[in-house]
Amino acid sequence: MGFARSVHFQDVSWLRGLGGLFIKPARLQIAALCYRPGKNEPEILLVSTRDTGRWILPKGWPEKDKPAFETASIEAYEEAGVVGETDPKAIGSFRSFKGLSNGLKIRTKVVVFKISFEKQLKKFPEMGQRKCAWLPLSEAAELVDENTLRRFLHRHRSSLV
């Protein structure tokens, strides 16, 4: 009984150091920042998500045995029918969350590649599943509801000229 009285269960400060052990690493997604010249500033392409209709960049999981920049091209084509020249070097990344069909959300790191717009096809794999919108960069940044994507767009404005 003497042992039980001497242990202080209120002192759990040692647990704080273990918190990092239970955080899963972010999953990687690849996004396409499709852009074209606009009247006063570059226009960028946003697509809606299939489930909630939120505005995002075309993005997806990395394609097996393909460089990341090719995945960006594939996503732009599949989600919006956009074809263009993809820069093989990423312009940056941002943190996001991916909603899964079972309702769970997982943390993701989204690596972004620029695609200089050449054309938009009338038929593409996800036609009718998403809305597509070409908007001036400043409008697009305000339309997205993810703060990390909004900051990313503002931060990389000068690289789209």
Rank of each mutant, 00 (worst) to 15 (best):
M1L: 14
M1C: 11
M1A: 11
F3C: 10
R5E: 14
R5I: 09
V7F: 06
H8C: 07
F9K: 09
Q10I: 11
V12C: 01
S13N: 00
W14G: 05
L15P: 02
L15Q: 14
R16I: 14
G17C: 06
G17D: 05
L18C: 13
L18Y: 14
L21R: 13
F22W: 10
I23E: 11
I23M: 13
K24C: 00
Q29N: 11
Q29E: 09
Q29V: 01
I30F: 03
I30H: 01
A31N: 03
A31F: 10
A32L: 07
R36N: 13
P37D: 15
G38F: 05
K39F: 13
E41D: 14
P42D: 10
I44N: 00
I44L: 13
L45Y: 06
T49H: 13
T49R: 04
R50Y: 02
W55A: 05
W55H: 05
L57T: 04
P58H: 06
G60S: 04
E63Q: 10
D65N: 10
K66T: 05
A68Q: 10
A68C: 12
A68H: 09
F69K: 00
T71H: 04
A72K: 12
S73H: 00
S73Q: 03
S73M: 04
I74P: 00
I74M: 01
I74N: 07
E75M: 09
E78P: 01
E78H: 00
E79W: 08
E79F: 11
A80E: 01
A80L: 08
G81Q: 08
V82D: 03
G84R: 01
E85C: 04
E85S: 03
T86Q: 10
P88L: 04
A90T: 12
A90K: 13
I91E: 08
G92S: 09
S93P: 06
S93V: 09
R95W: 11
G99M: 02
L100A: 04
N102D: 15
G103Q: 07
G103T: 11
L104W: 02
K105D: 05
I106Y: 03
R107Q: 09
T108N: 09
K109D: 12
V110D: 03
V110M: 01
V111C: 01
F113T: 02
K114N: 04
K114C: 07
I115K: 03
S116Q: 15
F117S: 08
E118T: 06
K119H: 15
Q120K: 14
L121N: 13
L121D: 08
K122M: 02
K122D: 02
F124C: 05
Q129E: 14
C132I: 00
C132Q: 02
W134C: 06
L135R: 00
P136D: 14
L137G: 01
S138D: 01
S138E: 07
A140W: 03
A140N: 09
A140V: 14
A141S: 12
L143M: 15
E146W: 15
E146T: 09
N147P: 00
N147A: 04
L149R: 10
L149F: 01
L153F: 10
H154C: 13
R155N: 13
R155E: 12
R155A: 12
R157F: 10
R157Y: 08
R157Q: 15
S158G: 08
S159C: 14
S159Q: 06
S159G: 07
L160T: 14
L160R: 12
